[in-house]
Design a protein around this nucleic acid. Sequence first.
DNA 1: TTGTACGCGTTATCAC
DNA 2: GTGATAACGCGTACAA
Lengths: 343, 343
Amino acid sequence: MDKEITIYDIAKGVGFSPTTVSRALNDHPAVNKKTKQRIYDIAAQMGYRSNLFASNLRRQHTNTIGVIVPILNSNFQSSVMAGMEKVANEAGYNLIISQSLGTMEKEIANAKTMYNSRVDGLLVSLSHDSESIEHFEPFFKKGIPVIFYDRVAEHKQSTSIVIDNVQAAYKATTHLIEQGCRNIVHITGNLKINVYTDRLKGFKYALVDNDLPYKKASVIATDLTEEAGIKAAEQILKMDPRPDGIFVANDFCAVNCMKALKQAGIAIPDDIAVVGFNNDPITRVVEPNLTTIDYPGYEMGEVAARNLTNYLDALSDVNITNTVTLRSDLIVRESSLKKKLKK
Amino acid sequence: MDKEITIYDIAKGVGFSPTTVSRALNDHPAVNKKTKQRIYDIAAQMGYRSNLFASNLRRQHTNTIGVIVPILNSNFQSSVMAGMEKVANEAGYNLIISQSLGTMEKEIANAKTMYNSRVDGLLVSLSHDSESIEHFEPFFKKGIPVIFYDRVAEHKQSTSIVIDNVQAAYKATTHLIEQGCRNIVHITGNLKINVYTDRLKGFKYALVDNDLPYKKASVIATDLTEEAGIKAAEQILKMDPRPDGIFVANDFCAVNCMKALKQAGIAIPDDIAVVGFNNDPITRVVEPNLTTIDYPGYEMGEVAARNLTNYLDALSDVNITNTVTLRSDLIVRESSLKKKLKK
DNA sequence: TTGTACGCGTTATCAC
DNA sequence: GTGATAACGCGTACAA
């Protein structure tokens, strides 16, 4: 293992001072062009690599963005990350990623690590059971920007990137009503999370605005897993009268629910129409194809990261923005198109 | 923004030297228990956080692992990352993640960044068009461990984590033959990548071992995208005689190919049986459910990360292992079960 | 345009 | 069990 080359070694090599070498390597304007070139050449020749810690230690920042995500292996979250990585990389930032695996405990530990790692900023989607966000207080106190996305929390000092979940759910539910559904069930996730409470609101408002009754029994709160979809289907089959529409807050769960219903002999959409949420690729594979809400994960990642890097690079002014709402649309497919309305 | 507290501040606070404070905070055994406790208390009270750069600078390592992945938003890759993150986190390492987006150019840039960031080790799945791995030479020269997984390259100084792609493809093809297929097409990816050449080999060997002819025209090389699956289907429909089996090197592509075939009136599996690769969740959603090879992404991530952290923490001896092969099995579902063989 | 000298916060080394 | 000191490699105020 060779010894690391430092700017001092280069300085000796070219006969200039370390200062000039440092400046040259950082492309400082006040260095003679020829000097610069010579320094570049020797540096390359000697196999020099800059030491980011030393630089970080000196400059007091890291060019690193921390990302805390509930779970990495979900289509939505990995799309978000892909968008973030692209933007961050282009802006010269590295991404340190950790997953809370849905528990607040790990989220707190991760936040602490990020804090000690001196990340320049934080991108967070809250865990399932995060009831408070006081573990981010150290960041707020130090003025380190925290941006929440998808699963957000309110805080004066942070920006949230979201879609209008109320409106999206409203659209989805209204669509079912327009298809003739009069007895709609809503399968949702953990109602502590803003995303699901908002979708529930949209569901409720759509019913009310169309003079349909809202019954608590029509809301099934689950963990939105594969099994949850199957269990929800069983529950729905037992309901009397049987529902004629289902709005599920997550595609994956919706698809599994559909499978279970189909196996029980239910015709979709004619007996029961189904609408999901996210526009996961599986929506175009399941039969019938699933009507859903287009939730632009990749774009959300881009926006969140851009928002942060712009702020860090002082390209955008102080944190005035409190919430950025992205567009999300209803994508109508066969799972919700009742025959009588089809041509 | 408050001033950062250092061990000097704590030293003043407790009346001990910075040395003792440093030792206490690192739980050094040669420090009086009471002293330690006092230092802990004051540190917490003053809101101290350790400065990882300074520590890194001094100790010459970062507790950071670099990950270079072709693309983040794929089910397989994100599962791998989830496994890596879990293991790395438990071992006290952070993950810096970047995606090559399938181009060698970005992979080179990412490798350089990782190198300058002084990662302690690297986990890499090669990009589509990486024809050489000389951009990792700096790591090898410095003795920084590089572990390849899934899309690997041979190098004396690196470990590869793989599955036996030849054998897996052999199993898949043999299964089709056992179902009565005699004219099987193989849809594959970029044949520069080991994964796909190996799968092609397994396909070929299975044919030969069963006295079936191997024709180059039966191999369709694509980019394995959604459209590729559809195009491949069109190509297959034009073949005369029409194939009775398809082995696709990727589930996502297989599913889209199936959709196109079904739309053209082909019965699956009876007209054409289909086998995929990866065991992506969509295999259990498509109808009929797709027979596939179980490719344990999460486990692969765990193994790769554990291999690296064990090495870094000197828990495992020098890099003797050259290749770790994970188990992968054929999962038989309806898409390949020809009726005449069903009970 | 270039150089001197110091400090960023930690830890290894040696001494007591 | 504790402390003084130097060093890790870089960036920059100040000086020339």
